[in-house]
Design a binder for these strands. Sequence first.
DNA 1: GTGATATAGTTAGTCCGCTAAATATATTTT
DNA 2: AAAATATATTTAGCGGACTAACTATATCAC
Lengths: 141, 141
Amino acid sequence: MNDKVGCDIRESLDKISSQMRRDYSESLRELNLHVGQDKLLARLWLGDGITQMQLCEHLKCEPPTVTNMVKSLEQNGFIYRKRDEQDARVMRIFLTDKGKELEKPVDCKWKQQQEKLLHSMSPEDLLLLRQLMKRLEKNLF
Amino acid sequence: MNDKVGCDIRESLDKISSQMRRDYSESLRELNLHVGQDKLLARLWLGDGITQMQLCEHLKCEPPTVTNMVKSLEQNGFIYRKRDEQDARVMRIFLTDKGKELEKPVDCKWKQQQEKLLHSMSPEDLLLLRQLMKRLEKNLF
DNA sequence: GTGATATAGTTAGTCCGCTAAATATATTTT
DNA sequence: AAAATATATTTAGCGGACTAACTATATCAC
């Protein structure tokens, strides 16, 4: 019975995250962006000029994933790359004006989705849910 | 502040599901399986001979996704396809012995991951968490 | 300074998702 | 019966994720 509950939780988790991904993906398409790219840009909005390795760490993904995302974002004119002057191995990533302009609309889409997800949840529910989720998170790392 | 909490929840959700996917993916590799294929097989273990369309519905994904997964599973000898005799458009999917044999080891991997995820959670925590997750789920559909 | 090792990023190739468009077969309409 | 429409699946092509193997540059050790 306990097992059943655990099973449900994992299924819920999968359902929620894949559905959110689908919704969000559709929503970002209007901005000519793909899921995941928004997180990369969000890191740059905090401060650009960082290296691909730093993006890897932040996004918790492997180097080839960043290479591809950066390539796509560059081709779409949202960012540009500059080789580091001290260390010729590293590439530093900068936002173009077009990339900077995306901050507001992306934030807006994000908030819309969040509202949909958390609709009808009271502050107490949210606090509780967050605490539980944080515990799950800790279990995985 | 409420916003901050909501934001954390979504980030937690993303982190948890992507980390679980990573872990599970690695775990399935030993069985020569990929993430998602286990869910397709799990449906077949309940009863095979169903159509790709039915798999689509069950897995909540699009037809081309099923086509590709089925192709890969067939090439690895876990399933085979047979054209329906009444309706020549539909393909019915059956488990091979090799595919049937996967049920136990996959279940074992699944349980291992579940235990890791839910470690240290009391039955009350789990019940509460499940209720909250069900509410989130409802919000998305 | 030369050789071994470490680090940053790329390339090739795979799978899961998707969309758009094509194919093949059924069914419905006229 | 022929034409129009609907359904099941496939193909082509893309992006995000990965691994394995590669290149280029830096650093460390001798």
